[in-house]
């Protein structure tokens, strides 16, 4: 099956290249980095602006194809170009991926396990109190854009803090703990982590529990569950061992996609709580007319989709014997 996986991979790669190129073209044509420099005080001479723009490969007057060629060549060699501030995109990118990972790791694990548990239990207790409450709660959460949850949590935390600084609402850690990993620094990080992680967990539990609930409901009426109980399995054991095990299958690809794409998708959480991750870059780079950073985000997202696709395929095959190719 190796050859077929390769063919699939090749197909994905073509998509990634096309998507990245399209993103670059759109960004290159639509954004205006010159404006960023022209707004400077004191004003810069036009010639020096052009020079800097050329140096950064961002000059709108250079034909887009030539700019793209230049950028693509660099990317192939592992260089993502310069940011509009003149730094290496590579460094910024590396730092931000680290930030996003630290934020997402715990939140996605808790979020997905919580979502599966809430959804499955809700299905078993369909229309009982727990199900009604969790359904209503997830409707409520899903009706809100993330920034609304974030800001609401922030307002709530400010009220709870009541002047103290127990729950931090901005940043990944306080400046004095930069680079430290001792107990105090970890506590400080935890204080910062609480709200953004909570935001992500709330969102994920709400989303995944809806899916898990509906797949679980489908399984509840299945013949094989009836067989399991006809064999003499207790209701609870049959539900978990035969029901949940099967009902989780269709949720897995969805879970994988969502988790992987959160690396650039946690935009609102990162923006609201001032974490300098990939999601924040997505918004900031556009606001700064930073063509190379925008292109990097586009490329990174496309690669993430590719990874998510392959990962969910593999995971699905590992979990479901019916699709295993032997």
């Amino acid at each position: 099956m190796g050859r077929y996986l390769l063919r699939r991979l090749a197909n994905y790669l073509v998509l990634v290249v096309v998507a990245a190129a399209l993103t670059y073209f759109l960004a290159g044509l639509s954004l205006n980095p010159r404006a960023k420099f022209e707004g400077r005080n004191p004003p810069l001479p036009a010639s020096s602006i052009t020079k800097t723009l050329d140096e950064y490969n961002m000059n709108p007057d250079t034909p887009i194809l030539s700019r793209f060629g230049h950028w693509a060549e660099d990317v192939v060699h592992g260089d993502l170009g310069k940011t509009i501030e003149g730094d290496d995109v590579n460094d910024d990118f590396g730092r931000r991926v680290g930030v996003s990972t630290r934020l997402l790791l715990l939140a996605t694990i808790v979020g997905s396990l919580g979502g599966i548990a809430v959804g499955a239990y809700g299905a078993i207790r369909q229309y009982r109190l727990f199900d009604r409450f969790s359904t209503l709660a997830s409707f409520f959460v899903l009706a809100m854009p993330v920034f609304v949850i974030g800001v609401a949590l922030k307002i709530g935390a400010t009220a709870l803090n009541d002047g103290s600084q127990t729950i931090k609402v901005l940043g990944e850690y306080d400046p004095q703990y930069a680079g430290q990993w001792n107990f105090d620094a970890l506590v400080n990080r935890a204080q910062h982590m609480l709200l953004p992680a909570l935001t992500l967990i709330i969102m994920q539990v709400a989303l995944y529990s809806r899916y898990q609930r509906s797949t679980m409901l489908d399984v509840l009426g299945s013949d094989f569950l009836r067989t399991a109980r006809a064999k003499g399995l207790r209701r609870r054991k049959a539900l978990v061992k035969h029901g949940l095990r099967t009902a989780i299958l269709p949720v897995v690809p969805l879970l994988v996609y969502n988790i992987v794409l959160l690396f650039t998708g946690a935009t609102f959480t990162e923006k609201t709580f001032g974490w300098h991750g990939m999601g924040e870059l997505l918004v900031d780079s556009i606001q700064k007319q930073d063509v190379n950073s925008v292109a990097t985000v586009g490329l990174f997202t496309a690669v993430l989709v590719l990874i998510a696709g392959l990962l969910s395929d593999l995971l699905y095959a590992a979990l479901d014997p019916r699709v295993r190719v032997r």
Binding site: L15, V16, V18, A19, L22, T23, L26, A27, S30, L31, N32, T264, T267, L282, V283, I286, V294, V297, G298, T301, A302, V305, L306
Partner: peptide, 22 residues
Amino acid sequence: MWIVDLLLVMPSFLIVAVLSPS
């Protein structure tokens, strides 16, 4: 379906945001 795949791979939020000046 190739177009569907491509649109799914493209970061839609980014694209709409990038095009917003237009």
